[in-house]
Design a protein around this nucleic acid. Structure first.
Lengths: 189, 189
DNA sequence: CGAGGCCTTGACCGCGGTCAATGCCCGTGG
DNA sequence: CCACGGGCATTGACCGCGGTCAAGGCCTCG
């Protein structure tokens, strides 16, 4: 089992080496180029991706073509479109790699099989869902009523590396403002 | 076990009568008056509430005193502050009954004990978290970039009863607009 | 070297928030 | 039974934030 994934399980469960080796074969390594689409809106999401290196984003595109980024996943995090993975319905979200990215992916059928049969995976899954829920709620809470300046300051406080690592366009779509406004605000600071 | 709660488990698990009767004693009945606070920001949320009759809302108040309602729970739904229940940390959200409300509540310690030991409760919990996550994501998606008129139309389409059952003030805080704007838009339709 | 993509910056303006005034509904108490 | 008061809904006037559009510059890559 890859050391990053081993760490992930070790931090969240008491799974022993035997269990980890049992889980390991269900994951397979894949690579994506910079800006490659991993999942497109309308497709059914078949995999859960654990990121070894690089970065992905989960985002939607509304009917006017405006992008809204929900989530950035960096090394050592899972990324998938849960709304599709859970339901088996077509996704309304896209997943895109923002850098050259290497992942371990697990098929949804295998994943949910393990959730049902392996306590460690059940626990990790619960932990992922809980974290995703809390993070989402927290972000809504922090952004509600916040103007554009406050949103940028929020990012500086909570995820400052993002501002340097990723393009203005992508960051702006995360903050719910336009790249123009973001550019003006960066100039001020 | 109360028939509404029994239905809830029956729809989501294959738990038999024996299991349901084992779970049942962990729930206790409570009532709340109209507009009573069930949980205040800063308190730790100790219970998960299953609503038998009436209605509650989960909401935050930002530093300017503006309310933001996340979730309405009606009969036959669970309501709690998960961000606090999961972490054991003080809530940044409030829970308030909007009508005279009767609930079955279960203590967080009992609840997580059952999540660990009873497959049916584990499954129900997963189901709740998944639904909460999907609902939140869906709402963000539908609201992103939507102007005030589109938000009201969204509510008419998805939860039309809310517009009659609850006050403008509360509905507006759910839609992320002011009661003034909501009032103007209702006049138009 | 040219094309395309992104960043920057200025000018414009419209949506919706804010504030204030008024009216309505309803519960409470004299 | 009526008078009073508080809370909410309604509506008009105002205006500011931030979105839109356009132009220009820079960088990268083929």
């Amino acid at each position: 089992m890859h050391p990053l994934l081993r760490d992930y399980f070790r931090k969240r469960t008491d799974a022993d080496e035997h269990v980890l080796e049992k889980i390991s074969p269900y994951f397979e390594e894949r690579s994506f180029k910079r800006n490659e689409y991993v999942l497109r809106e309308g497709e059914v999401c078949k995999h859960n991706y654990f990121i070894i290196s690089g970065c992905m984003r989960l985002f939607t595109i509304n009917k006017e073509g405006v992008e809204n980024t929900r989530y950035f996943a960096f090394e050592g995090k899972f990324a998938t479109c849960f709304t599709s993975l859970i339901s088996g319905l077509p996704a309304f979200e896209n997943i895109q790699s923002l850098e050259k990215t290497t992942v371990l992916r697990i098929h949804r059928d295998d994943f949910y099989y393990l959730v049902e049969t392996e306590a460690a995976v059940n626990k990790v899954y619960r932990n992922i869902m809980e974290s995703a829920y809390i993070t989402t709620q927290r972000r809504i809470y922090d952004f509600q009523g916040a103007d554009s300046l406050e949103r940028v300051q929020w990012l500086l406080k909570h995820q400052p590396t993002i501002l340097n690592r990723l393009s203005n366009k992508v960051v702006a779509s995360y903050l719910g403002i336009t790249p123009y406004t973001l550019s003006r605000l960066k100039a001020k600071l």
